[in-house]
Nucleic acid binder design. Structure first.
Lengths: 251, 251
DNA sequence: ACCCTACATACCGGCGGTCGGTTTGCATCA
DNA sequence: TGATGCAAACCGACCGCCGGTATGTAGGGT
């Protein structure tokens, strides 16, 4: 069987390189259209590789997921580790640094992050969402747990169960999505001030909840940060408008 | 086109009746094998109906999910409403009644409930899991939120944000699954006492967390209940052994 | 007698995945 | 340096099956 002469210029690549290239293409497609809507054929086209080539590197479509999530986890873990070892001081200081660091990071990457969760919460993407969140949680919970355990050892925190407290802190971000949704709706309809107040109120409530959870005096974990939120909401609203303009449906 | 004479005896049924029958069959299959592993053809066989018949009542496979989740939600909502209106007294009393009622209910239905979450957390069932949990949350959160708002009004509770507190309480049940898993492992390996202690410790910690969350003195929400947990673990271990014996894999 | 609708069957496009074959870089020789 | 062998990267036709549709039929209510 002769190879077609009209073949596009296709390099032979090192396994790792090819794997990454395929993963990149797949990742982009999934983010754009969602897990179920993207077929292997789509990935093949985007990565410019044949079916045989693809299945030489990946055992199944699910394998793409594993790879993508693994990369995400690495990133998240690295970020978390960096944040942990960055600041010195007592446990509360370090926790606050960790939290405001994560808020700042989210504000900096608001556009992509919002696009990500937007895709992840679309119907048909439950698998992606679940895996990504599980990975994130698995990366963050130990860091927080360690931080809290430190705080208990040095007497800063007073907590019934470090693991439980860590899980609850992470768990708060679940519900935050809805609040962010509502705040974004207010923003795009022009009422940025109200959106900002709404978000800030939620974050203040979260901060107060943290205080109680960790056995600290009220105000120890200040999560209020209106300027940062304002910046984040503006960026999100901007990217929202952008994605509204090219809603062709893809394919 | 003539109808096959060797047709099995098939009644013509009222739409609702048929819908329920299909839903029943599908539900059983999904619980047994998981969402992705069950094909429409399987459902057709189990419900003894043709493809045309099926698609007369349901528009797609996803529609089965919607139906099943709707039924679950109805049940959950009814149970929650019943629990809410059952007891009188101040908010704390009612909250405690609600919580121990739900524990008792879970202990009573431990076997089925465990089988359910076991299926729901299997890979390939993320969609089912997500929808079921969302529905459960949507049913329970408002009840808790109302309860907490009542408590704030009458001065029993002191909480930054009722909605947030309600979400956190529900959120705790996420992580409980893992603890239950570990406790079950201890139980089946013979160490029921240790498993019971482990579970009870977690529940005490959860109770203490509730106290803080709601601004109550420690010990106000006592979640320790070793006898009930012992009963639950025994039943779960039993059903675990049972399901181990017939692990043919289906199909 | 009519008709609406509950139901049946044949069929379709496309999906994820397989398989036998072909190319290509590279180590190993003369 | 060039010929040779070989593993692995890569190809694309093909397969089985799944969710979904099109079209035809029967049967109870009026």
């Amino acid at each position: 069987m002769k190879r077609d002469d009209t073949r596009s210029t296709r390099r032979r690549m090192a396994p790792d390189e090819r794997r990454e290239a395929i993963l990149d293409a797949a990742n982009a497609l999934f983010m754009e259209r969602g897990w179920e809507a993207v077929t292997i054929a789509d990935v093949l086209k985007a990565a410019d590789i044949s079916k045989g080539g693809f299945y030489h590197h990946f055992s199944a479509k699910e394998d793409l997921l594993t790879g993508i999530v693994a990369r995400m986890t690495e990133q998240a873990l690295a970020a978390a580790q960096a944040a942990r070892s960055q600041t010195a001081g007592d446990a509360l200081t370090r926790l606050n640094a960790f939290l405001i660091g994560s808020v700042r990071w989210k504000a900096d990457n608001a556009a992509e992050l919002w696009g990500l969760t937007d895709v992840l919460t679309k119907p048909g993407n439950e698998i992606l969402y679940r895996r990504a969140f599980d990975a994130m949680e698995a990366a963050v919970v130990p860091v927080l747990e360690g931080l809290i355990a430190d705080g208990m050892a040095e007497g800063t925190f007073d907590v019934p169960d470090a693991r439980l407290a860590a899980e609850m802190i992470v768990c708060l971000s679940h519900g935050r999505r809805r609040i962010l949704d509502e705040a974004l709706a207010m923003t795009v309809s022009g009422d940025l001030d109200r959106a900002n107040d709404y978000l800030d109120a939620r974050m203040r409530a979260e901060g107060a909840t943290f205080d109680r959870l960790l056995g600290l005096p009220t105000g120890s974990v200040p999560l209020s940060n209106p300027q940062e939120y304002r910046r984040m909401l503006t960026v999100m609203a901007q990217s929202h408008d952008d994605s509204d303009k090219d809603n062709d449906g893809g394919r």
